[in-house]
Simulated assay, not measured.
Amino acid sequence: MSGINSFFKIFTPKNVKFYDLFEQVADNVVTMSKELCLLVKETDADKRKTRVVEIERLEHVCDDISHTTFTELSRNFITPFDREDIHALTTALDDVADYIYSSAKKINYYRLNPNEEGIHKLANLIASGCEQLRNAVYGLRHMKELHVITEAIVKMNAFENEADDVFDLSIDRLFELEHDFKQLIKRRELYQTMETATDKCEDAGNVIESIIIKYA
């Protein structure tokens, strides 16, 4: 009997492990987004650097978790949902972390003063999108309350649309008021990177939406 049990254990999907990994990344991404909000409101340059270091650390943690997920994917014959979907969601979550870190890094390397309304709004929209992304990721474990996942996805899309508007207005204001060409390029890159972070939240939401359509 014990031999039969051991046989079936080989083919038992390690659902819990994959869900744990997704949720760990989602938690880290939320923490990164909150750090970014604190970073852009920090007036002291040295303290901003400390925030950037912490965001970098968290981004490396996300990379490690993503690597673990891909390793588990190669080891497990049976998975909670399609292998392609697991790969796509892992990549999408990692992309969100990458663009949050890239935003923080640009502020640091370009020595930008982020005390500006457009940057603050984009940081808040990134944080709001990440919160909803975490809600959607946590909803995947049981898929019993689909409305929680779908509402989170709708809100992510709304935040991304709002970020588009903030980006357009910020660029328009930048070209109107900034006369230093180097500063103009640096700030435009920062706006673009931050707006892309909200795009990546939406992309991750789209992956989750495709998963629940298949399996809910």
Rank of each mutant, 00 (worst) to 15 (best):
L93E: 09
F70P: 07
I65W: 01
E54S: 13
A88N: 14
E59C: 05
T71Y: 10
A104F: 09
H67G: 02
Y101A: 04
D44I: 00
A88K: 14
E54D: 13
R75D: 08
D82A: 11
Y101C: 03
D95A: 05
R48A: 07
H67Q: 13
Y101K: 13
R57T: 14
H87C: 11
A97L: 03
F70H: 09
K49L: 12
L73E: 01
A88S: 14
T43A: 14
Y101F: 14
L89P: 00
S74P: 01
V96L: 05
C62Y: 00
I78K: 08
D46T: 01
S103V: 07
H60G: 06
R48P: 06
L58W: 01
T71N: 10
E72S: 09
H87W: 13
A88R: 14
K47D: 02
R57M: 09
E42F: 00
L73C: 02
I86L: 05
H87I: 04
L89C: 00
K106T: 05
V96A: 10
D82C: 04
A104C: 07
E42T: 05
H67Y: 11
K49M: 04
F77V: 12
Y99C: 01
A97M: 02
I65Q: 08
S103P: 09
V96R: 02
N76D: 12
I65K: 08
V53P: 00
E59T: 06
K105Y: 06
R83C: 00
T90K: 05
S102V: 03
I65C: 07
D64R: 09
E84W: 00
R83P: 07
R48W: 00
